[in-house]
Write a protein that binds this DNA or RNA. Structure first.
Length: 116
DNA sequence: ATACTGACTAATC
DNA sequence: TGATTAGCCAGTA
């Protein structure tokens, strides 16, 4: 199982109306130090039906910087889901994805199973 | 193999 | 608190 595929998988696991951080995703992929690679992965595979708008940095800042072809697209998508965005930032305390231990375990097991 | 890059983070000031 | 610095590591040239 490729790291990028894992990233895609984890992103699709993020619940509607929640956001996750790069570091969080990297951790769930089994590579806690690969936060940057997560961003790189999303950049490469934005077309792959990955809800990348639910991914922000550890401060809750939106990626902005032309990550999405249309400016404010990420912000709009989040607001549609009920996530409040202020000054290109979201409140991780309220909207951050609190991944449960079960979800983490499920993903880990899934990865190990498909990795072989 | 070396050097540089970057949708990141954690540690210092 | 807010700004800087210093690690990080897969990709790319």
């Amino acid at each position: 199982m490729d790291f990028y595929q894992r990233v895609a998988r984890v992103c699709r696991t993020i619940p509607y109306g929640r956001v996750a951080t790069y570091g969080q995703i990297a951790m769930l992929c089994g590579k806690p130090r690969n936060a940057r690679q997560v961003g790189y992965a999303l950049n490469r595979r934005t077309e792959d039906k990955i809800p990348a708008h639910r991914v922000v940095n550890h401060q809750g800042c939106l990626s902005g910087a032309g990550a999405f072809a249309v400016p404010d697209l990420q912000k709009r998508l989040l607001e549609i889901e009920g996530v409040v965005v202020n000054e290109d930032q979201v409140d991780l305390k309220k909207f951050g994805w609190k991944n449960t231990l079960e979800e983490a375990t499920l993903l880990k097991a899934l990865f190990e199973e498909e990795q072989i």
